[in-house]
Design a protein around this nucleic acid. Structure first.
Length: 306
RNA sequence: GCCGAGAUAGCUCAGUGGUAGAGCGCGGCCCUGAAAAGGCCGGCGUGGGGGGUCCGAUUCCCUCUCUCGGCA
């Protein structure tokens, strides 16, 4: 039985994934599945740097701008959505090409999620209340008692992860560290290739700074001020550019400062993305050379795949 | 040209006669239902050049170079 092919093209923000992916998709008869926790949202085209419509016409893109920004979205929903698109593509004889920069998202598509412990708003609210009353040390010690393994891995200041682990335990009666062993990934029926783009760090940072400038020219301020007038989900609000401009709108600092913050936070983000990817030893790295065009990079990748 | 102030980390600067810090920047890492989020770690240095005093100078003295003010 022939294995089903699934390809991933990942890389830090602003490195040029979108255009390279379009060239590549055409060569290999693929459709693109966006792998980006923020580009799933609609009406956030500029802040999230979604591919332009002209580009999206060249190759079909999935999971781009499909969620209302008032709604929460998360890895679990993403995996379901992505896998159902995968099976559609397989029946059409197309290869799914995942393209994006959300490390957790792509890895969970491949490796699966441990079952039966979605967010419980009530329990979580209770835990956050305890956090503000008694501090993270208290919760951390609680975790250390019920799940010493997780406690060892989580830093006492990482209250978000402490709370999630406690929530899982309160809900299921099982420690997170035990449940995590039960994850089920895609398995042997698939041929999976993960390609990650990288380039000289300084060159990447220059590209990021330039992209942010471009976003401003494209109407970022207008888009964000419009977004802030409506309800934004906890997740959608996390897109870089929103908080930074909110501070400017509130008169906390100048527009120039807001722009500087967006550039800096994007650089930090890119750095964290690379840290995440580096850990995944399955990745084949594609280092983009100075002056190399998108088409040339796509060609190199294509050769590597065939 | 004269007078004054300064030259210390990538940047802005603090401090001390026992070879140095702070903020920002930067680098590394962790990550399982918020992930563009959240958390952790790291000073990354020819203290402008050269002399002198001293057991010992980044710190005190002299000198040179440069920068910034003011006066001409």
């Amino acid at each position: 039985m022939l294995k089903k092919k699934i390809f991933f093209l990942i890389g830090p923000t602003a490195i040029g994934k979108t255009l390279i992916a379009i060239h590549l998709a055409k060569k290999i008869n693929a459709e693109i599945i966006s792998c980006d926790s923020m580009q799933v949202y609609s009406s956030m085209d500029i802040v999230t740097s979604q591919p332009a419509y002209a580009q999206r016409k060249k190759v079909k893109h999935h999971l781009l701008g499909v969620i209302n920004p008032a709604k929460e979205y998360n890895v679990s929903r993403y995996r379901k959505d992505a896998l159902s698109i995968c099976s559609q593509l397989f029946s059409k004889g197309k290869i799914p090409l995942f393209v994006g920069g959300s490390g957790l998202y792509y890895s969970i598509v491949i490796d699966g999620l441990f079952p039966a412990a979605p967010e419980d708003k009530l329990i979580r609210a209770k835990l956050y209340k305890q956090l503000s009353l008694k501090g993270n040390r208290y919760l951390y010690e609680k975790l250390a008692k019920i799940d010493p393994l997780s406690a060892r891995r989580i830093h006492p200041n990482d209250s978000r992860r402490i709370i999630r682990s406690l929530e899982v335990y309160m809900k299921t009666g099982m420690p997170l560290s035990v449940l995590q062993k039960g994850r089920v990934g895609l398995g042997a029926g698939y041929e999976i290739k993960i390609l990650a783009l990288n380039m000289d760090r300084q060159a990447l940072y220059n590209k990021i700074d330039q992209r942010v400038s471009k976003m401003f020219r494209a109407g970022l301020i207008k888009e964000v001020s419009r977004l802030l007038k409506h309800k934004l989900s906890r997740t959608a609000k996390c897109a870089i550019g929103i908080r930074e401009l909110e501070g400017y709108f509130n008169g906390e600092y100048s527009l120039k400062e807001a722009k500087r913050l967006i550039q800096r936070n994007s650089r930090h983000y890119a750095k964290r993305q690379l840290t995440w990817f580096r850990r995944d030893k399955r990745i084949q790295w594609i280092v983009i050379k100075d002056k190399e065009t998108h088409r040339e990079v796509a060609r190199r990748i294509w050769k590597k795949l065939s």
